Simulated assay, not measured.
Amino acid sequence: MSLRSLILATYINSGLFFLPIQMLPQKFSELESLATQIPIQNCVECNNFCTIKELKSIAKSITVKIISETGWGSGIILKQEGEVYTVITNQHVLNTNNNSYLIQTPDGIFYQANKIENENFQGNDLALLEFRSTHSIYAVASLENSTTLSLGDKTFAAGFPTLEKSEDTEFLLTRGRVSILSKQPLEKGYQVGYTNVVKKGMSGGPLLNIYGQVVGINGMHAYPLWGNPYVYRDGSEPTLTLRQKMSHLAFAIPMETVAKLAPNFASISTIKFDETVSIKFLNYLFFDDFGELLNWQFYPYILSTSCHGNS
C-alpha cells in the first residue's frame, strides 16, 4: 500500500469523513463552484488554507504599483501608522536619480511617495517607501517566515507585469511551488526559489503561502538575460548542476530578512498554526495530484467543516 493510500485509509477509519462518497460532487467543476462560493474570511485566523479566489483578493489588497521615470515595479503595503503607509519593494525598482515616486493603490488612486533613506538593508535588494492617505484606508500584509515553507509547497506570486495588458488592471497572480530553500543567501539576499512565472514589473510584489501570508518579496525572474546573479554572499558559487536548476526558477528575498533589518516596519505574525498531522494532510491533499486519485470526491466536505462556515 502506498503512503498516500495509507494516510487516506487512516483518516477514513478515524471518522474524518461523515458523508457517503456518492453524496459528494463527482466533477471538479462542481468542486470549484463550491469552493468559490465560500464567504471570504481571514484565512490566517481561520487556521486554514485559502481558496484561489481569496488568495487573489488578498494579494490585490496589499500590492501596489510603484511608478518611476523609467517604468514601474510592484510593492507590498507593510505598515500603517495613522495616515502614513510604508511599502516594501526591491532597490532595483527604485534605481533612478529621483527619490520621489508615484504609488498606485489597489483602488486606483495615485499618491506621491518618498523613499525612506535611513534604513540599512546591508546589500539586500530591498527598499522602503512611504505615502500618506488622508481619506482611504488600505490593507496591510500579514507576514510569515519563509522557514515555514517546505520543498513542494504551493506559492503564489503577485505584481504588475510591464509587458502584460489585461482587463484586470494589469494585476497578475501566478501559481507555483517551492523548489529551492537556500541556507545561504545570494549576493542580493535571495534565498527562496520557486516555479511561479514572475515577469518584469512584478519585482517587489508579494510571494504568498496558502494561508495568504507574505513569505517573501519577488525580485528575480527565471532565465536572467545578463550577468551571473547566482553568487553567494560570501563570494562562492553554486555547483553547475544547482546553478542550472536555479536559472529555471524565480527567487524571493525571505520576509524574515526584512523583519530582521527593519524591525520598526515589519514584524512576523505571532499566529501559530497547529502543525498537526491533520493540517499537514490537508495541505498535502488539496494541492497535490492526490485529489485526482480520489476524483476530488471528499474535498468539498473538508471545506464545509472549516471555519469558513462558522462566521
Rank of each mutant, 00 (worst) to 15 (best):
I38D: 10
I58N: 04
H248S: 13
E54S: 14
K27C: 00
L294A: 11
T134Y: 08
E275L: 11
I40F: 14
S311T: 14
G73N: 06
I302V: 14
D289N: 15
F265E: 04
F273N: 12
D288E: 15
P263D: 06
M1G: 12
I67D: 09
G15N: 10
N295T: 06
E275P: 00
Q37F: 00
L6Y: 13
E237V: 15
D274R: 10
N97K: 13
L207Q: 03
S267M: 13
E170H: 09
L163D: 15
T148P: 00
V197W: 09
I180Q: 10
A252E: 01
G159A: 09
P263H: 04
H248A: 11
S269G: 09
T239F: 04
C43L: 06
Y211C: 07
E275C: 10
G108M: 02
Q22C: 09
N310I: 03
N120R: 09
D168L: 14
Q22D: 12
S74I: 09
L285F: 13
Q80D: 00
W72R: 06
V87C: 02
G212K: 01
I137C: 08
A59T: 05
A262G: 01
W296K: 04
D274W: 09
E256I: 00
P25A: 03
M23H: 11
F160A: 01
L242E: 12
E45S: 14
Y85S: 03
F18Y: 08
R132H: 06
F160C: 05
A9M: 09
M202D: 06
I253Q: 05
P39D: 10
F28R: 06
K65C: 05
N209V: 08
V197F: 12
L186H: 11
D107R: 10
N218K: 04
L172K: 06
S61L: 05
S5I: 13
V215P: 02
P263A: 15
V215R: 01
G176C: 09
F287M: 07
K260S: 08
L225C: 07
P185L: 07
L207A: 12
T239R: 05
Y101A: 01
D153A: 06
D153G: 08
L126E: 02
A59K: 04
V258E: 02
G212T: 05
V197S: 12
K165N: 14
I66K: 02
P224M: 10
Y230H: 03
V214S: 07
V214N: 05
D234W: 02
L102A: 09
N196C: 15
S29H: 11
Q112L: 13
P206L: 10
K200Y: 13
I88T: 04
K79W: 04
A113P: 00
I12S: 12
M23Q: 13
I58P: 01
N99Q: 11
I76D: 02
I103G: 01
Y230E: 03
E32A: 14
I116N: 03
R132E: 15
Y85H: 11
I210W: 08
I180W: 00
T89R: 08
A266H: 02
K280Q: 13
Y301H: 13
